[in-house]
């Protein structure tokens, strides 16, 4: 298990050599094993078709495993499906509620499916719809809602049974940055309050900012399972884009830094992650170049993700 896991003997999720082969012969999971500690904020990343949704489908009872087992707070999905479902809240990738019902009806009904009486479900639905800032749409048909509102409704719906494990399968897909940030804030709050969160996302900066631990799945196998800090420390090269003035003549040469001219006002600098940035600035200043602003060329996690998945692709090809 990774180094930043919150302490608790019983993992929130324990997956043991889980395999899934679909009827068309596609092997979506090839013996996946994984542990997620209680209270963790865990990222499950992987390219499209890697097996993330199949794994989540098995945990949420939408996909039957071919072999292996998964235990949620010690309860086996093979032995006690209902017991597992009581622990889980699921925010699926695709919009999957009745577009003719209102958000309030959807939340209260889903609570009912968990055996929560309406007198308890109604205030709870109001609470989460308010927290996710869609209460003003609570009694309108959901087909009239925007994409971002629908995404937030799916989170509110998943919270109706106040789950111990919240699984979010690309919850912010297609959502603008402002709403995305408010969703991050809500989910972080839920996690701080003790709910274990598993997040899959294609916005890697989202995973980097929110998650303490991470697993990367590719071709149905876990290719990395560690803490976010440890994974990011593996990145030995960093790249920056610099907006500069005074870049008139020849490209300057600096020790340990590979500089590339993008245009008359922009440079790209690639250097070891241990390289001193002050030395870069000093070197450029000495040659009459002033840095007016700088940014990371790519997200650090994105860089690592691409490398890990590429490596796995080459391995599989070989």
């Amino acid at each position: 298990m990774s180094d930043a896991t919150p302490s608790s003997a019983l993992p929130a999720l324990e997956v043991e050599t889980l395999r899934k082969t679909y009827s068309n012969g596609v092997q979506a999971l090839k013996g996946v094993s994984l542990k997620v500690a209680q209270g963790d904020f865990f990222a499950l990343l992987g390219p499209n078709g890697a097996g993330k949704s199949t794994l989540i489908g098995i945990l949420s009872s939408l996909v039957n495993p071919t072999s292996g087992d998964a235990r949620v707070f010690g309860i086996s999905v093979n032995r006690d499906r209902g017991g597992v479902m009581r622990q889980i809240g699921l925010v699926p990738q695709e919009i999957n509620f009745n577009q003719f019902e209102t958000p309030f009806e959807i939340c209260v009904n889903v609570a009912g499916f968990y055996g929560i009486p309406r007198e308890l479900a109604k205030p709870r639905a109001e609470k989460y719809l308010r927290e996710l800032r869609i209460w003003d749409k609570a009694h309108q048909p959901t087909r009239m809602m925007s994409g971002g509102m629908k995404r937030r409704l799916m989170i509110a719906r998943a919270m109706m049974n106040e789950p111990r494990l919240l699984i979010l399968d690309e919850p912010t897909a297609g959502v603008d940055i402002e709403i995305r940030r408010s969703m991050w804030q809500f989910i972080s709050g839920i996690n701080r309050a003790g709910t274990t969160v598993i997040l899959t996302t294609h916005y890697l900066e989202e995973a980097e900012q929110l998650c303490r631990n991470i697993a990367i799945i590719d071709h149905g196998e876990i290719v990395e399972d560690t803490s976010m800090r440890r994974l990011l420390s593996k990145l030995d090269v960093q790249s920056f884009v610099l907006d500069v003035t005074g870049l008139d003549g020849k490209l300057p040469e600096l020790d340990g830094v590979k500089l590339t001219r993008i245009d008359g006002q922009t440079l790209e600098a690639e250097m070891p992650s241990t390289h001193n940035l002050n030395a870069l600035f000093a070197g450029l200043t000495a040659q009459g170049i002033t840095v007016t602003s700088m940014r990371n060329k790519t997200n650090r996690l994105e860089e690592l993700f691409v490398r890990l998945v590429d490596r796995n692709d080459h391995g599989a090809a070989a």
Binding site: S60, S61, L62, R81, G82, G83, M85, R86, I88, L90, P92, E94, I95, N96, F97, N98, Q99, N109, V110, F113, Y114, G115, R157
Partner: peptide, 17 residues
């Protein structure tokens, strides 16, 4: 309709027998 609209998943992912 619930299968087609995928909201049958609300039932499948619940603890109901």
């Amino acid at each position: 309709g619930s299968k087609f609209g995928r909201y049958v998943e609300e039932l499948l992912a619940s603890p109901m027998p």
